[in-house]
């Protein structure tokens, strides 16, 4: 038996809401994750959820442009970037556990506070939302903020770049699911920038390693006043 209140909401929006919930869950999982390999897999899963939600929006609203952006998401976020990251990890032969600057429970608590902030900030917007998927813009903002938190609590270069990409995921989710798609040129541009950013990040890993014998950002911090 389906509860009666659910009949009012079409299946597609329910699925998008489910995707939104999964996005948030995965963002938290990434925040709590200590192992780099698992982190990459979580990032891949988040990319896949993003792909599914974009696909559903594309099919229900008949916007064929969005099909292309779903395709880009699939190729880039689910296949290409995780592959590159895996190869990098193998080449650098680093499978170490991630050290966090704050311990995990504290980070999680801050994360919860951030989600509350995000929902509060997004509330006036979700009330205006013409799209049925109201909560998504709040969730997208929460994902962005959680990725941001992950970036500042991690001390190694690889997790920082993954956090950077996860932030892009949250933004992409806001663009496609909450507003039903930005113009195609913009999405192409964003995808291109993410790709180039990743490549530059990858190049950097090698140089940082050469220079410092480690990928720990903290080692770089010479005393530099001012």
């Amino acid at each position: 038996m389906i509860p009666t209140f659910l009949h009012a909401i079409p299946l597609s929006s329910q699925v998008i809401n489910l995707c939104a919930a999964l996005m948030l869950l995965l963002a938290f999982a990434m925040l709590a994750q200590r192992r780099v390999l698992t982190l990459i897999n979580l990032f891949m899963m988040q990319g896949f959820v993003l792909f599914v939600s974009t696909l559903i929006v594309a099919l229900t609203t008949n916007q064929h442009e969005l099909l292309v952006s779903a395709g880009i998401t699939l190729v880039l976020k689910v296949i290409a970037l995780p592959l590159i990251l895996h190869r990098l990890i193998r080449k650098l032969s680093v499978k170490w556990d991630i050290e966090t600057l704050l311990n995990i429970p504290t980070t999680m608590l801050i994360g919860i506070a951030l989600v509350i902030v995000a929902f509060n900030v997004a509330q006036p917007i979700s009330q205006l939302s013409g799209t049925i998927t109201r909560a998504t813009i709040g969730i997208a903002l929460a994902c962005v903020l959680l990725a941001f938190l992950m970036m500042i609590t991690r001390s190694k270069a690889v997790p920082q770049v993954i956090a950077f990409l996860a932030m892009e995921n949250g933004l992409f989710f806001a663009a496609t699911s909450a507003t039903y798609g930005m113009p195609m040129v913009v999405e192409l541009g964003i995808a291109l920038d993410a790709m180039v950013g990743m490549v530059i990040g990858g190049v950097f890993f090698f140089h940082i390693r050469q220079q410092f014998d480690s990928l720990d950002i903290r080692q770089m911090e010479r005393v530099k006043e001012g």
Partner: peptide
């Protein structure tokens, strides 16, 4: 150089955010 890599990384991350 180490210093320039540090500066560029800081720039990349901060401006990326």
């Amino acid at each position: 150089t180490p210093a320039s890599l540090e500066a560029a990384w800081k720039y990349f991350i901060l401006c990326g955010v």
